[in-house]
Amino acid sequence: MPGRHSLSTTCHGLLPTTTTTLILFVLLILCLFPTTFHLLWTLPFSLLFPSPHHTKQQPSPPPGPGGAITAETKTMWFQKQFSLPARARGSYLITDTVLEQLPEIRAYKVGLLHLFVQHTSCALSLNENWDEDVRADMSDTLDKIVPEAGPKGEALYRHDAEGPDDLPAHVKSALIGASVTIPIKDGKLATGTWQGIWYLEFRAMKHTRKIVATIQGEKA
């Protein structure tokens, strides 16, 4: 029948158009959501052949005594400035002064104490804490290493605006250093039996010096 033949021809003509539209739609989905397609494509394989890289990570055990600080442990900071009594040239033991100025040390189970002197004509050091002759000998030795004048009293340095002892003081400060760092253990400075904190003054006249103390560590 003519009508039936015409309807069949029309249906057969629509099939390629519908297939083409479906293919274009799938390609559009792939372009917009490539990750989803990759997940659907690889899901059966991942279920059959699990990757060893996707194993659950086990939590790390807590450190034992003396171990590293964990993420739960909070590192505490403290900073303070204090002044030393005015002193003329010489080497002085100031361990007791530091402890008096920093009672906060007793609150720390483990940590570091950093002392920094804010001047360029003096220094800090760790050295002999018993025989005061060592400190006197240290000052005399530094004077011999960096003298104020030559054998005949002649000037040795260009920088003398503040007196002949100024430039030698700068050199001595550079040789010894402006800071010391001391470990803290159980609320005390973990120095050796014969170690003490020295303040070395290199100017002839008395000077008052300022120290910045910084504590970093874990409180008890």
Rank of each mutant, 00 (worst) to 15 (best):
Lys219Leu: 12
Thr21Ser: 13
Thr181Asn: 02
Glu154Tyr: 00
Pro103Tyr: 01
Gly111Pro: 14
Gly64Ile: 14
Ser51Asp: 06
Asp131Gly: 05
His119Ile: 06
Leu102Pro: 03
Phe116Glu: 09
His119Cys: 11
His12Glu: 03
Ser173Tyr: 06
Gly163Ile: 09
Gln101Asp: 09
Lys56Val: 03
Gly67Asp: 00
Val98Gln: 12
Ser6Val: 15
Leu142His: 06
Thr55Ala: 13
Lys219Trp: 07
Thr97His: 11
Arg135Phe: 15
Leu126Arg: 04
Val180Ala: 03
Lys56Phe: 05
His114Ser: 02
Leu93Ile: 13
Gly67Pro: 09
Thr73Ala: 14
Glu154His: 12
Ser125Leu: 10
His159Met: 14
Ala149Cys: 10
Met138Cys: 15
Thr95Phe: 07
Ser46Tyr: 04
Pro168Lys: 08
Ser46Asp: 13
Asp131Ile: 05
Trp194Asn: 07
Ile69Trp: 02
His38Glu: 15
Thr9Cys: 14
Thr73Tyr: 05
Gly192Cys: 03
Arg158Ala: 12
Gln118Lys: 09
Val110Asn: 04
Leu47Tyr: 04
Phe33Glu: 15
Arg158Leu: 12
Asp140Pro: 01
Ile145Met: 11
Asp165Arg: 06
His5Met: 08
Cys31Ile: 06
Pro168Tyr: 05
Ile211Val: 14
Thr21Gly: 08
Gly3Met: 14
Lys152His: 12
Ala68Gly: 09
Met1Phe: 11
Leu15Gly: 05
Ala88Arg: 14
Gly217Glu: 02
Glu132Trp: 15
Phe33Val: 08
His159Tyr: 05
Cys11Gln: 04
Ser51Trp: 01
Met205His: 08
Val212Ser: 07
Gln195Ile: 03
Lys172Arg: 06
Ala107Ser: 15
Leu142Phe: 06
Glu72Thr: 03
Glu218Ser: 07
Lys109Glu: 15
Leu22Arg: 05
Gly150Pro: 13
Glu201Ala: 01
Leu48Pro: 02
Leu142Lys: 14
Ala220Thr: 12
Lys185His: 08
Gln195Trp: 00
Ala190His: 04
Val146His: 01
Ser139Gly: 14
Arg158Ile: 09
Asn127Met: 03
Gly111Glu: 11
Thr181Tyr: 02
Arg4Cys: 01
Pro183His: 11
Leu30Ser: 10
His53Ile: 13
Pro44Leu: 05
Glu218His: 09
Thr55Trp: 01
Leu7Asp: 14
Thr21Phe: 02
Thr141Asp: 15
His114Tyr: 00
Tyr157Glu: 07
Phe78Leu: 08
Tyr92Glu: 05
Leu7Cys: 13
Cys31Ser: 14
Ala123Ile: 04
Ala155Trp: 01
His53Glu: 00
Asn129Phe: 03
Gly177Glu: 01
Asn129Tyr: 02
Ala161Glu: 09
Pro85Leu: 00
Ala178Ile: 01
Ile69Arg: 12
Glu104Asp: 08
Ala190Gly: 08
Ser125Phe: 04
Lys206Cys: 08
Gly187Asp: 08
Phe37Cys: 15
Gly177Arg: 07
Thr21Gln: 10
Asp133Thr: 11
Leu47Lys: 11
Trp130Phe: 05
Pro65Lys: 04
Val171Cys: 10
Ala71Tyr: 02
Leu99Tyr: 06
Pro63Ile: 00
Phe78Asn: 11
Phe116Gln: 04
Val134Cys: 05
Pro34Leu: 09
